[in-house]
Simulated scan of single mutants.
Amino acid sequence: MAKLLYAFSCSVDGFIAGPGGDMSWLTPYLGPDPLVDELIPRIGALLVGRRTYGGDDPHRGTEGEGKAFGGGWEGPQFVLTHRPAAAAPDVTFVGDLEEAVTAAKEAAGGKYVNVLGAGIARQCLEAGTLDEILALPVPVLLGDGVRMFGHPGGRTIRLEVLRPNWYRVVR
């Protein structure tokens, strides 16, 4: 059965995007990464937040073609939104989290559903559907922006180490 994986790059101080969702900070750090190269063929579908789908991606320009990871991956994408965008190949807009997770898992087969976007990852954590987290720290401090995870008032979520930077969510 497919598992939901939140794989992301982040600054050492825990930000996945700069102020206003700016992703341009990541561009100088993109390049060959053996862990990402190993992960890409294990991804069967994407579950994407609407802001991430239409946001300031360092690979901007490939998302309309249904290509993620700078064109290194192709397949079905499920965008959680109440504001569908223009149709794109292999992109399905879904208005309900449970429906989006179910459809993405079905499309992924036995592979991972890669979650893209802090907001949707947070919703999956709260719904108990997120299985694993892969953090790819980048050697930079941003100081402000979109946190990898935030919960007003705090919340502890236990993680089990599977391998360096790769964790299982403990329920």
Rank of each mutant, 00 (worst) to 15 (best):
K3Y: 13
K3N: 13
K3I: 04
L4I: 02
L4K: 11
F8C: 06
C10T: 09
V12S: 08
D13H: 04
G14Q: 07
I16N: 01
I16P: 01
A17I: 04
A17L: 03
A17P: 04
G20S: 11
M23E: 11
M23Y: 04
W25D: 11
T27F: 01
P28A: 13
Y29P: 08
L30W: 00
G31T: 10
P34C: 10
L35A: 14
L35F: 07
D37E: 15
E38Y: 09
L39P: 06
I40C: 01
I40L: 15
P41L: 12
R42T: 12
G44K: 09
G44H: 08
A45R: 11
L46A: 02
L46T: 03
L47H: 01
G49C: 00
Y53R: 07
Y53M: 11
G54M: 09
G54R: 08
G54F: 00
G55H: 11
D56Q: 10
D56C: 02
D57W: 15
P58Q: 02
H59F: 15
H59K: 08
T62N: 06
T62F: 06
E63Y: 13
E63M: 12
G64V: 11
G64S: 13
E65T: 08
E65Q: 15
G66I: 12
G66A: 12
K67W: 00
K67G: 02
K67L: 15
K67M: 09
F69K: 08
F69E: 03
F69P: 01
G70P: 06
G71F: 04
W73Q: 06
W73T: 10
E74P: 02
E74C: 11
Q77E: 05
F78M: 13
V79C: 07
L80Y: 03
T81M: 04
H82F: 03
H82V: 08
R83L: 06
R83Q: 10
R83F: 02
P84W: 09
P84L: 04
P84D: 09
P84F: 07
A85V: 03
A87Q: 10
F93I: 02
V94N: 07
D96L: 11
D96F: 13
L97W: 09
E98W: 05
E98V: 05
A100I: 01
A100G: 03
T102W: 07
T102G: 00
A103L: 14
E106V: 04
E106Q: 14
G109R: 12
G110T: 13
G110N: 15
G110Y: 10
V115C: 05
L116N: 03
G117K: 04
G119S: 15
I120G: 05
A121Y: 06
R122G: 04
R122I: 00
Q123D: 14
Q123C: 08
E126D: 14
E126L: 14
E126K: 14
A127C: 05
A127Q: 12
A127N: 08
A127T: 06
G128F: 02
T129P: 05
E132T: 13
E132N: 14
I133H: 04
L134T: 05
L134C: 06
L134R: 08
V138Y: 00
P139G: 12
P139F: 15
L141R: 11
L142T: 10
G143H: 03
G145S: 08
V146T: 13
F149H: 14
H151I: 03
H151M: 05
G153C: 03
R155Y: 04
T156N: 02
I157D: 01
I157V: 15
E160H: 09
E160N: 13
V161S: 13
L162I: 04
R163T: 10
P164V: 07
V170N: 02
